[in-house]
Amino acid sequence: MANLETHHLGDTVIQLQARGVRQARPLVVVHLRVTEFDDLSISPEMISLRFHLGQLSLPRAVPRIISFVASNLGAKIRRLCEHHLLRFASQSAVELAAGSSLELLVDIGAFLAPGCAAPDTELIYEWMLYMPLQEQEMAFVQDYNLQENGGFGGVPASKSFIESLGRSPYGQGEGVREEECVICLEDFVAGAEVSTIPCSHSFHSRCITQWLEKSHLCPICRYHMPTANSNPQGQHVM
């Protein structure tokens, strides 16, 4: 299954693509690019969002996910695009075979210059064709667990990774750059038990353990720690 729609909405163009993919566990993946055009420059912002559905079905999960994605858009763009995105994503979810996951590519372009006319939106569309979203490297990735109550929880780091974290007294040895733990906002004191994660940021051992049990992202730079479903090595996403 692959669907494609394009809408010219005043000074904004939205191109929507949907694909069904087979995954071991159900997912909705949204690749979002919002590009602002003016007379002198083109400024794209890109992000990927992965939503782990747990026991929720795709038709139930999609409206919550689209509302969450739309909340990250500017007010004007959200007003123009949310209805089209919800209808398109919901229809695509219904068409998928049982056990499939949904991948959405949402490409939005908007002119900043006043007095935009129809030929201007055609230029945006031509740029989208020349620089298709699926060929872009997404600059930032976020993972969420979709909960039964409608909330979005973080994806924890793997238990084995958390248990492998080293612990050392603050003030002994090299490599601790921080003077306070950004999780509890308390200064490190001599002898406090500290753990340093692969991106070289350090925290109280108890604080980072509790953090990683809820989220696999570094609290400072959003470095990816391994999860139960990921490769052993983490990765930088910024």
Rank of each mutant, 00 (worst) to 15 (best):
M1S: 10
N3F: 07
L4F: 06
Q15M: 08
L16K: 01
R22Q: 12
Q23R: 09
A24W: 01
L27E: 04
H31V: 06
R33I: 04
T35K: 09
D39I: 11
S43W: 12
M46W: 06
L53N: 01
Q55K: 14
Q55A: 13
G74S: 12
R79F: 14
R79S: 15
C81N: 07
L85V: 12
L85G: 04
F88E: 03
A93H: 05
L102W: 03
L104V: 07
L104Q: 02
D107N: 14
F111V: 13
L112M: 12
C116S: 15
L133M: 09
E135P: 05
E137G: 05
M138C: 07
Y144Q: 03
Y144F: 03
V155E: 00
P156I: 01
K159W: 07
S160D: 14
I162G: 02
S164G: 07
S164N: 09
Y170W: 09
Q172M: 08
Q172E: 12
G175C: 03
R177K: 15
E180W: 13
I183Y: 05
C184F: 04
L185N: 13
D187R: 15
F188Y: 08
V189W: 11
G191T: 05
A192E: 10
E193R: 07
E193I: 09
C199G: 09
S200L: 11
H204L: 04
R206S: 14
Q210P: 09
S215G: 05
N229G: 05
S230T: 03
G234V: 03
G234M: 00
